[in-house]
Amino acid sequence: MESADLAAVWLTLKLATVVTLLLLVIGTPIAWWLARTRSAFKGVIGAIVALPLVLPPTVIGFYMLVVMGPNGPVGQFTQSLGLGLLPFTFPGLVIASVFYSLPFVVQPIQNAFEAIGDRPLEVAATLRASPWDTFWSVAVPLAKPGFLSGAILGFAHTIGEFGIVLMIGGNIPDKTRVVSVQIYDHVEALEYTQAHWLSGGMVLFSFLVLLGLYTFNPARRKAL
């Protein structure tokens, strides 16, 4: 494997790791709220979280480019903070990927929270556990399979991301040139040998991830 390919693999793993950690932090409260709320907004928020499941990545990427560009609201906001613009940067890819992979993390965790039901939480409350304590000592341990599924799916989905990166990445080595873009370049340049190495690696990786998911976490089928 040439060094450009290795750099792309490394960058992709870095992106997926950062995105997965962020998604666990952001996705958990959203999943908890969606699982417990009786609010009228539950449907709206749930639908927004699920949007990336149905939207083509080109649509998301196109809007991200426009919104994060110099004339878009997010672009003007980041510029006013002195942060510059997000397209063509690693943080830009991270933010785009967080949105794109959100449902893959939120939904398994939400389902796991819902599966707990009210009873264990009520029991904890009668034992005078605070809501915060109940959440960490009861809900999170019981929902562990959901967290595991969410983390694995979020990680794997970010690894496989292509359309959005293509739209807002700009193909910069070590910053935005991830494996999927590198494969696309190899195919376009008719470098099929290199394309096979990376593509074959992706197939093997994805299979192993899913195999792990189904072998060690049979609850997943219920959780999703």
Partner: peptide, 20 residues
């Protein structure tokens, strides 16, 4: 300062949106 579009249409898109 270089950013690359995968083809000439995408490159134009970067410039039209002002991202580049």
């Amino acid at each position: 300062l270089l950013v690359q579009g995968e083809n000439i249409s995408q490159t134009q898109q970067f410039v039209v949106t002002g991202a580049a």
